[in-house]
């Protein structure tokens, strides 16, 4: 098991290097940040000083080499806009993003899984149709639109919730729900189809024949067996969550990493973009490693060597 984890972690290194290379190339071929940070009528002399100060006057391969050397030490360089270390800017906002993402994920699991189970168990009833309709909508409505809609309804019309910012748990409701809705849809739909499959298995009939209670059969026997694909989906959707955070944090003025990322991208603030990309990649890889390890917990037949 430990050997497996070690091997997986080592395999992660080329992945992260690839991510660094791609993000570096994509950001650098997209243009020169000087044009965005200094106004167009800035004299050339001042622009050259700015470019030299941030190493933008070097050949691109020198920039990449420098960047890799420093990145290995956890230093992504100073933000071009804030003049502060990019790593610091990301870490400062990590708490807010974690709070939002974890709440959204828990919400998605707590709503999505039971909804999927009920839809499967009461297949083709009104409950099933309701779950399917709502999840379809949840997957179809883009979160920037949903976010604005919830602000107008719950903040402006009803005055129940604040329109944005971070503070009390009330501030968390709208952004977390908006972020969760997409995931709820996916989790519910996956749970439903996996449950349908499992509920037709022989061992479920056996369990019924043994006289086990119906809810015990559904929520323990069936769900545990149906859960592995759901877990995979959850692991993969961490990526979606990271993407969703970028939009949701902007709409709800949430002071997190996603909003930092979008502003950095617009301003071609390379160091910050790279720090955020690598940070998101680390989380994605980490969560999926944990998901793989959880398979063994759910299904004793799976072992890792």
């Amino acid at each position: 098991m430990l050997q497996y984890v070690a091997r997986r972690l080592i395999l992660t290194l080329p992945v992260l290097f690839g991510i660094l290379l791609i993000s570096f190339m994509l950001t650098h071929i997209s243009g020169d940040p000087t044009d965005l940070i200094l106004s167009p009528d800035t004299p050339d002399e001042a622009r050259e000083l700015f470019r030299r100060k941030h190493g933008l006057d070097q050949p691109i391969w020198v920039q990449f080499y420098q960047f890799c050397v420093h990145a290995l030490q956890g230093d992504f360089g100073n933000s071009l806009r804030f003049n502060e270390p990019a790593t610091k800017l990301v870490l400062e906002r990590l708490g807010a993003t974690t709070e939002l993402a974890v709440t959204a994920m828990l919400l998605a699991i707590l709503v999505g899984v039971p909804a999927g189970v009920i839809a499967a168990y009461r297949r083709n009833t009104a409950a099933d149709v309701a779950v399917r309709t709502i999840t379809l909508l949840g997957q179809a409505v883009p979160s920037f639109y949903l976010g604005i809609l919830t602000i107008i309804i719950f903040a402006v019309w009803l005055r129940w919730l604040p329109s944005g910012g971070r503070g009390t748990w009330l501030h968390l409701i709208l952004p977390a729900t908006t972020l969760a809705l997409n995931l709820v849809a996916l989790i519910a739909r996956t749970t439903r189809s996996c449950m349908l499959d499992v509920l037709n298995q022989d061992y479920i009939r056996t369990a019924r024949a043994k006289g086990l209670g119906e809810s015990w059969i559904v929520w323990v026997h069936a769900l545990r067996n149906a859960f592995i694909p759901v877990l995979t989906v959850i692991g993969l959707q961490v990526g979606l969550l990271m993407g969703g955070v970028v939009v949701t944090e902007t709409v709800f003025s949430w002071p997190g990493v996603g909003r930092l990322a979008i502003q950095a991208i617009y301003a071609r603030d390379f160091p910050v973009v790279q720090a955020v990309v690598l940070f998101f990649a680390l989380i994605f890889v980490g969560v999926n490693l944990i998901v793989d390890l959880l398979y063994a917990v759910l299904d004793p037949r799976i072992g890792y060597r």
Binding site: I148, I151, A155, V156, P162, S163, G164, S253
Partner: peptide, 18 residues
């Protein structure tokens, strides 16, 4: 000073008195 990047959200917050 509050940074509110979305302009609809800025208008909404003004309407609610935030």
């Amino acid at each position: 000073w509050r940074p509110v990047p979305d302009d609809i959200a800025r208008a909404a917050g003004l309407t609610t008195g935030e």
